[in-house]
């Protein structure tokens, strides 16, 4: 977006507010853990240069090189009082963050960065805070005062619309916003090209059954968008000719499987580049 205030350096010469302007780390060895959903957590960490140096000094450069770097994930009872087990995830410390998939929801977790040396010794480096992941289903605990029979509760779940969970305002806001951005880009000059006008020339009456009743169906893909009218546009490595107003639309065959469509726009002078990559998955099923 370009607007008086949304991004460009302002008239008063604003400082650099891009994400890159923030430091990569804060020089402290520390690690934190955040809950994402019943089965996923996110951890981020920093190992200070000093700490790393000392560690290498302690165990030797070779030993360090050859040791396995891991996130050790400790699983505890929900109240955090009882250790129930752990597992290791191999990582590169340079990754600095990781999404962790856990097999069991509703538990308390804690992570630790560590090394496993060639001879199997475990050397801990830094621990995270603890998080308790939510349960992903109905509790087994029933209290006597407020008892209901199982069947009734199932019914209650159903009428509560459990299947709609997560279909909240974000969904609609997101789809509206995306639609908005797309339309703004494409229709800003009321040039409307609709997918509806496609003629289906590639449809052939294949294998017409002797029974006389038949169906053929196929599907194609329309890729469209808009960029600055003087830009160079590429789909894959093919250069695409833009319409005078900067819009473009192309029709492709769409085979079964994954199709990746990398779209790249390069500004006229060649010093700005933007890309959008679209992945389409087609799966065709026939049934009698």
């Amino acid at each position: 977006m370009s607007s008086p205030g949304s991004g460009k350096i302002g008239p008063t010469g604003e400082p650099d507010y891009s994400a890159k302007s923030l430091p990569e780390g804060y020089g402290k060895t520390e690690a934190f853990l955040l809950p994402r959903d019943p089965f996923w957590m996110f951890t981020y960490w920093e190992i200070s240069e000093n700490r790393l140096k000392n560690l290498i000094k302690e165990i030797g450069a070779n030993e360090y090189e050859e040791s396995k770097k891991v996130i050790r994930v400790y699983k505890m009872s929900e109240d955090g009082n009882k250790l129930e087990g752990f597992f290791d995830i191999p990582v590169l410390f340079e990754a600095k963050n990781w999404y962790i998939n856990v097999p069991e929801c509703g538990k308390c977790y804690e992570c630790e960065l560590g090394l496993i040396t060639k001879d199997g010794r475990y050397l801990p480096i830094v621990k995270t805070n603890r998080v308790v992941l939510p349960r992903a289903g109905v509790s087994d605990v029933i209290d006597e005062k407020w008892m209901s029979v199982n069947q009734e509760f199932e019914k209650l779940l159903e009428i509560s619309g459990v299947e709609y969970i997560g279909k909240g305002s974000l969904d609609i806001a997101k789809s509206l916003a995306q639609r908005w951005e797309m339309l703004k880009a494409v229709f800003s000059r009321i040039t409307s090209f609709g997918v509806s006008s496609i003629s289906s020339q590639s449809l052939q009456k294949q294998e017409i059954k002797e029974k006389g009743f038949w169906l053929v169906a196929d599907c194609e893909l329309v890729v469209y968008g808009a960029t600055q009218s003087d830009a160079n546009l590429y789909i894959g490595d093919r250069k695409i000719k833009l319409n005078p107003d900067g819009t473009f639309a192309l029709r492709y065959a769409l085979p079964d499987g994954d199709t990746l469509i990398p779209i790249k726009a390069v500004s006229k002078d060649g010093d700005m580049e933007k890309g959008v990559s679209i992945k389409v998955i087609r799966e065709t099923k026939k049934y009698e």
């Binding site: 994402r36 959903d37 996110f42 981020y44 349960r135 997560g166 909240g168």
Partner: peptide
């Protein structure tokens, strides 16, 4: 339980590959 009204019902909308970098800071 821990929950939100966002997509999928938990924290993912506010913690994913597009924005997880903010939490360190």
């Amino acid at each position: 339980i821990m929950s939100s009204w966002g997509d999928k019902g938990y924290n993912e909308v506010w913690l994913n590959g597009s924005n997880d970098w903010i939490y360190r800071h």
